[in-house]
Amino acid sequence: MPLLRRRKPRKKRCRHDSKELEARGLELRIPEGGELVLLNQFLILGALLFSLGVYGLLVRRNAVMVLLSIELMLNAVNVNLVAFESFLRNAGAGGQIFAIFVITVAAAEVGIGLAIILLIFRNRTSANVDELDLMKW
């Protein structure tokens, strides 16, 4: 990443002994930078995004807006997945692949969700969730 290329490498901080890693069949990749980037800053951002999504999910009246909030929550999950992928150094792209899966499933979910909303709208001429209370007493 040219954006993040450091001018002079700092002291390398490795938490793993290279020999120990080699014994486990893993390759030690010494990073070029980003030593002071904490994992937690991403996790907290993810938690914030997720909570905002929860808030929107609970408070919005329009079904489309509820779906938008769900997208926000899924996005929070993606942030966490990619951050963990970066954090665990030999994850073999698992985090990113699952982020891709989440994106795919989210796309499917939006398609179905909007189809359902469309159907509700057709039947009730409103897409407000609080008017859908057929399940009550």
């Binding site: 901080r13 990073p31 980003g34 904490l38 991403f42 954090f87």
Partner: peptide, 9 residues
């Protein structure tokens, strides 16, 4: 305070 050491890789 664990760090992400793989940034840029």
């Amino acid at each position: 305070d664990q760090e992400i050491t793989r940034l840029g890789d």
